[in-house]
Amino acid sequence: MTSFSDISSALRIERVTLGADSLQLTLANGSEHNQPYRMHSVLEKATDVQRTQWVLVDGGCGIAWPALVPPDEVGLINTLDLAWEASYDAAMALLKQADWQLEALPSREQDLCALWRLEADMNNGGFLQFFGNWGEANCRIAMAALQKMGAHQALAIVQRQRDIVQRLEDDPRMQSMQDIYGLLTEAESDELDELDHAFWAYPDRLAPLGLACYGWGDMASPVPERG
């Protein structure tokens, strides 16, 4: 596992070049990354002068525009997040090549694909969407990956949600995942909702933990179609 210090040092922003349609980040490891303004509505709508008013945050890995967006510790664009997304994209591209057969991939790529599915579905519709779409096997891989990364708070959230759903597995009324919504008690539904919100707050910042554990892909790679 690579240390966070090594990761942040390699991905620190050394130079920002503003173009007509995008900005280019030159990183400490010598790599370059173009970020189109259209990916961030505030930058797309900003004037040329406003775009020049950036500051570095997060140890030089994040870039913020305080006049456009209230700054936080991560920034509007962060190279740690971009590198983590690139790791996901590379793994998902391999999954597509394997005809979406997760078990056909090496364990590292299985972990990354399971984590991508967890993050994507949790952020879109919550745990029940994730578990309903991908099932027990994918959930188990994602949880093991969170443990491996040291994302203990995120793991505890997902584990508790899994425990709530597991109660219903032996219920004869449950014939499909769609039945779960009617079988949950009101208290269980409320707890699942609270846990979804807790996950969305990202008590563990997954990008640096994931990069230290799994490394990263080419940040300039195109995003593959996802199934």
Rank of each mutant, 00 (worst) to 15 (best):
Q153A: 14
G59Y: 00
A67E: 13
H40T: 07
F131P: 00
E85T: 12
C61N: 13
W100D: 15
L94K: 15
W84C: 14
W116G: 06
W54G: 00
L115I: 05
L128N: 14
A93H: 14
A104C: 08
A137F: 06
V69R: 10
Q97R: 15
G135C: 01
A46T: 00
N34Y: 02
M149Q: 06
M39Y: 09
M122E: 11
W100G: 03
V55Y: 08
I157W: 09
L112R: 03
L27E: 10
N124V: 08
P36E: 05
P70L: 05
Q53Y: 01
E109Y: 08
D48N: 08
C139M: 05
G75T: 10
L95M: 15
A98L: 05
T79G: 02
A46K: 02
D121C: 10
I157N: 02
R51K: 09
C113T: 04
A144W: 03
T79E: 10
N34W: 05
P71D: 08
L43K: 04
F127N: 05
S107T: 10
G125I: 01
R51N: 01
Q97V: 08
N29C: 04
G60H: 12
G59C: 04
D58M: 03
N29F: 04
A90P: 14
A93M: 09
W54R: 01
E85Y: 14
L56A: 11
L102H: 09
Q153L: 15
H33M: 15
G126C: 11
R117K: 07
A142Y: 07
L128G: 08
L27D: 07
S107D: 11
H33R: 14
G125D: 02
F127W: 15
A151F: 04
Q50K: 07
A28D: 09
G126E: 04
S31N: 13
A67F: 11
